[in-house]
């Protein structure tokens, strides 16, 4: 009786919530279609606003960021375009069109900045860069399920012990990969200069010495934050502070 009651409750919730979820998804997709239509009609400003509104509402999708980046490129705003391409890369890291457009956008920038070198963990766990966080989690969940099933079966069928051990190894590796992904995303925060021209200061003050200048679209590594100032780093020698408003992260 208890089990049937539980199932009934879940069914009820599902039937009640599904139309709501479907309706929300339908609204979101309608908005995407509208934004894409505006882009096709060369109304890039409106299109970008529509994409931005979706992102503001909490939608996280790599293709949405990509399209927004395209809209900004068409508007001639290289900085926001690169920033959105960088965001898109977190979700669709293997997308060739994205890589091409990001390369194109970087070519439009004024500053020649070498991309930051990958860390030791990223070299060791090279596959982590090719998958987004969700994919790694999905993979680990699937593997976790298979592992526990194999573990239960191996109690009845001893020949599955080798498979069980192999799965345990891969499962642990997938957990470590997720950890590496989280760490690399938290450590390596990329920032994009959104202002046309920004002066990198030696300290967190407007009257501090200007070390060097950056221009719109320049990709920098954000290493620290203090009030409204961000510490940016190009390489071992070139680093300084910029106002937070001039940088997109």
């Amino acid at each position: 009786m208890k089990l049937s009651n539980t199932i009934s409750f879940f069914l009820f919730m599902l039937l009640t919530l599904s139309p709501t979820l479907q309706a929300e998804a339908s609204d979101y997709l309608n908005e995407v279609v509208r934004a894409n239509g505006l882009y096709s009609d060369k109304q890039y400003v409106e299109s970008a606003q529509a994409y931005e509104a979706l992102i503001h509402d909490g939608v996280r999708n790599g293709y949405l960021y990509y399209n927004l980046g395209n809209a900004y490129i068409r508007m001639g705003k290289t900085g926001p375009a690169i920033l959105n391409y960088v965001h898109a890369q977190k979700w669709i890291p293997r997308d060739e069109n994205l890589a091409a457009n990001l390369k194109f956008a970087i070519q439009q920038t004024q500053d020649k900045i070498e991309p930051p070198p990958p860390g030791t963990l990223n070299i060791l766990f090279f596959w982590v860069n090719d998958f987004n966080f969700n994919e790694l989690v999905y993979f680990a969940i699937g593997l976790n399920f298979i592992f526990w099933v194999t573990l239960a079966l191996s109690m009845c069928f001893p020949f599955l012990k080798i498979a069980r051990n192999a799965l345990l190894f891969v499962l642990l590796l997938s957990f470590v990969s997720i950890g590496v992904k989280i760490k690399s995303e938290s450590d390596l925060k990329l920032g994009v200069v959104l202002a046309t021209n920004v002066e990198v200061k030696s300290g967190r003050a407007v009257d501090a010495i200007t070390l060097f200048q950056l221009h719109e679209g320049a990709l920098v590594t954000v290493t620290d934050k203090h009030n409204d100032w961000l510490e940016v780093r190009l390489n071992d020698e070139q680093k300084g502070w910029v106002p937070q408003s001039s940088l997109g992260t």
Binding site: A25, Y28, L29, V32, V33, N36, Y39, G58, V59, R60, N61, Y63, L64, Y66, N67, N70, A71, I73, N97, A100, N101, F104, A105
Partner: peptide, 13 residues
């Protein structure tokens, strides 16, 4: 640049 994506199945949140 390469064109935008329009396939709706790609836009799952």
């Amino acid at each position: 640049i390469l064109p935008i994506y329009t396939e709706l199945d790609k836009f799952q949140n």
